[in-house]
Structures are given as structure tokens and as C-alpha cells.
Design a protein around this nucleic acid. Structure first.
Lengths: 236, 236
DNA sequence: AAGTGGTCTAGACCACGAA
DNA sequence: TCGTGGTCTAGACCACTTC
């Protein structure tokens, strides 16, 4: 008798080895459950996880087919900057540069879902590792959603850390870019001539209500984002 | 009677609304199955998916707790450049710039797992959308793993497309960077002064054998990578 | 020792959608 | 129409880990 993990591994092997090629139809759950001497539920779980991983596509009546990949799925984990710095055993320093309540630009207003003349909290801060600037955090926070933000000075705690405590599990959207550094970014991040920045734009919201919109700006020469999840994911 | 999706949604709601806060212990599967009037299996599936999504952590005997997030998980889908261009209804053009078999530099040799004096196939190609260069593809291919590559001219088919047909589901690792453009990149990608490049480094292998190592170089002003998967994933 | 989650069984009903 | 996957049940045994 085989476990769903073993079955998943066997099926995965048959796919990566191209015994089953893209477009091919896999045997039905019924057939496989007989082959492996287990119940259909067990086979179902194995195949469902392969489908979640993007290796196969399943449709009722049509069966399960090997996917012809048209893109490379990948998962990344964007660490909170303080964590990332401390994990590297560097000393972390946080510096608040600017804090004010003001009318956000139109695009930010739309992203946060604010009224026409509604103010938001603007924060600009710098994060250092071993005294070297690693991240510039330029952020708008929706005060209607988080009135406590008005009372917080953000002198000692970074807005990212603060928000993670208040709103631990928001919805998130990210955009990554390689940008030319502005003059201000060049100065604040101590960039060399022509050194680009790696920008993470993040929008968070919860049940339709915008929470924050932020640009995380990193020195191109000191930042990389890595992935270790594959089209053929390393299951546990 | 409630389905596992309804239960998952209810639990998710209790977490995002902070009725259950980070660190809090959730009721046991047993208790929840009574609350929702279903079997433990159903609750198990709901909670397992919340764990997969990173909202909770589960340990035998210790129970299930809400996670205090220390990073933002995200999933991206890196499209094959031809697909991406065609999806935007632009005309796709592919141009092979260089093709030769040679000894790769030490770091690439290590990544591909080659012997000391083993040659590999080097390819340099450009991908255009509507006549504008969108991606420079600089690549090493392991000929031991893919001897057919020696016979392929790559004059008419891009190496990415070719590889996806041969080795549809390899293991993959990615690194993303914002880099200063080299003089050659600036010329080939028609970059402006100081315009950075968004670089995707990809390593693929299958059952321990290296397949390809590639740098995909994009004009910073014409490229963005987006994510729509959240810490609180939008389940189906 | 005992409570928790992890997995499996042997069935069942049903929704979907290809033929 | 009817084969496929999607889900659920009522039970069971076990692994793990805290107490």
C-alpha cells in the first residue's frame, strides 16, 4: 500500500522523465487506485497536489492531462527588512525622515480607495544594516482604516513592523521594477553614479478597504530577490 | 452542513478580522467539526489549506496557531517572452546573435555540474516586441544532458521555447536583480543613458543534472513583474 | 500519558462537461 | 448520456510532541 506522497512522487517522476508528455492523458483516479492498491481518495490527493503545483490540469469527464508550461511559476518570500538585516547578523537601524498628513496624489488616492479630499498619512523612512542604507520606505497609510496611525509617531518603530502588528494578514499585491534612481534616492541610499534601484511596490487592503501603499526602494548593487520554488516544486 | 471552502472562509475571516490574533490557539479539529456539524476530515482540509497559505501553523499535540508573519509570501508567474509579447498583441521577432560551443566560466560550470574541461553550448539572442528589443537572452546549455542541442541551429526557434518542448518540467531557481547595464546591453536593448536593466537569472536542472543557466535581461523602463497572490490568498 | 494533527479506508452522492 | 473529478462521511490507526 502506498501513501499519497509516494504516489505523488511516482506520478511526478513519470512526468518529469517524460514518460507522460505535455498533453498526455493520465489514467483516471479509479485506474490509478487499482494500480497502487489504495482508495481513490488517496490518489485524488496526490493528483490534486500535482495540479496545485501546475504540473497537470484536471477537468471533470475530460480527465487529467500533463500541462504544456507557458510560464514559470515561482514563489518568493519578501522578508520584512528588519528581519532580513538581523538574519544577516547586521546591526539594524531605523530612521524616520518625514511624517505628515496630506492629500495623496491621485493614483495613490485611487489605490487606497479614499474620498476626494481625504487626507492620508505619509511616511518616509530609511533602514540601515551595519550603518549602510539598505531600504528607503516611502508610504501612504489610510487613516480611516487605521485611525491609531495618527497617534503613532513612528519615531522608534518602522511602519512595516507597526503594520504587521496591527493588520497581520491583509491582501497584498506587489510590483517589482528596476528603476533609475532619483536624485533624492541617490543621496539617501548613497548610490554610485548610474546605480539603479530595485523597487518593490506594495498595496495592501482588507475586505476591500485600502490599508497602505508603499514603495520599497533598494540599492541595486546590494539587493537580490531569490526563489527556490520550482515548476516542479520540491514537496516536503 | 458546511463545505470545507465555507469553513476555510470562516476561519480566514476570523483571522483577518483579528478575532483570532497572531499566536492564538485555534480550536481543535474535533471541536470545530462539532461547531460546523461536519466530520473532522472536512475541517482538516480547511485548516490544512490555511496552513499551506501561511496563515496558521499546525503541530501535533500543540494544536493550530495563527502565524505572526515575518515575511510576505507571493507567487509570480514568469511568462515565456514570446507568449508575453503575443499576449500584448505585439509582433514577435526573434534574433540569434551568437552560438558557439565553449568552456563556460567557473561559476556557470559549477551551476551546471560540468567536468573541468567539458564544453557547453553558449547562446545569445534577442527578443523583440513590435520591433523594440524586450529581452536579451544569454545562456549556457548542458550538452551532456541535451545532446540534441548540438544539432539545433536555434536560427528560427528561441532557446526558451526549444527547451520547454524538450524538458517541460525541470526544477528551477530564480534570482531577480536591478543591474547597471553593460555597454553591450545598452546597445542591444537600445537603452537610454543610465537606464538600468531588470535581470532574471534562472538555473534549471532535473534529477540533479544541470540543464541550463541563463540571464534574461530586460530594459528597466519596459519591464515590470507583478504578483497577485497575497498573504491571505484569494482562494478559488 | 494523552491530546493533537496526519493519513487512510470504503463507501457515497453529485457537478461538470465531453461526446 | 455517463465517465470523470470534487467532495463528504464515519470511522480507524498512528506519529508526534507536549505535559
Amino acid at each position: 500500500m502506498r501513501s499519497y506522497k509516494e504516489i505523488r512522487g511516482i506520478l511526478q517522476e513519470r512526468i518529469t522523465s517524460q514518460q507522460w508528455q505535455p498533453g498526455d492523458l493520465l489514467p483516471s483516479e479509479q485506474a490509478l487506485s487499482e494500480e497502487f492498491g489504495c482508495t481513490r481518495s488517496t490518489v485524488n490527493r496526490a493528483m490534486r497536489e500535482l495540479a496545485d503545483a501546475g504540473l497537470v490540469e484536471r477537468r471533470r469527464k475530460a480527465g487529467t492531462r500533463v500541462v504544456q508550461p507557458k510560464s514559470h511559476p515561482a514563489t518568493i518570500s519578501i522578508p520584512v527588512i528588519r528581519q532580513e538585516i538581523e538574519n544577516k547578523d547586521q546591526s539594524y537601524k531605523y530612521l524616520l525622515l518625514e511624517r505628515l498628513e496630506a492629500l495623496p496624489p491621485e493614483d495613490v488616492r485611487a489605490q487606497l480607495g479614499l474620498e476626494q479630499n481625504e487626507k492620508a498619512l505619509f511616511l518616509k523612512s530609511l533602514h540601515y544594516g551595519d550603518g549602510i542604507p539598505q531600504q528607503l520606505d516611502v508610504r501612504w497609510i489610510n487613516i480611516s482604516a487605521l485611525p491609531e496611525a495618527s497617534q503613532e509617531s513612528f519615531a522608534d518603530i518602522g511602519p512595516n513592523d507597526w503594520l504587521l502588528q496591527r493588520v497581520p494578514h491583509p491582501n497584498i499585491e506587489h510590483v517589482f521594477r528596476a528603476d533609475k534612481a532619483t536624485a533624492e534616492e541617490q543621496r539617501l541610499l548613497q548610490l554610485q553614479e548610474c546605480e539603479p534601484v530595485f523597487t518593490i511596490e506594495r498595496r495592501t487592503w482588507i475586505s476591500g478597504q485600502g490599508i497602505t501603499y508603499v514603495r520599497l526602494v533598494h540599492p541595486g548593487s546590494r539587493y537580490r530577490m531569490a526563489t527556490r520554488s520550482s515548476a516542479t516544486p520540491t514537496f516536503n
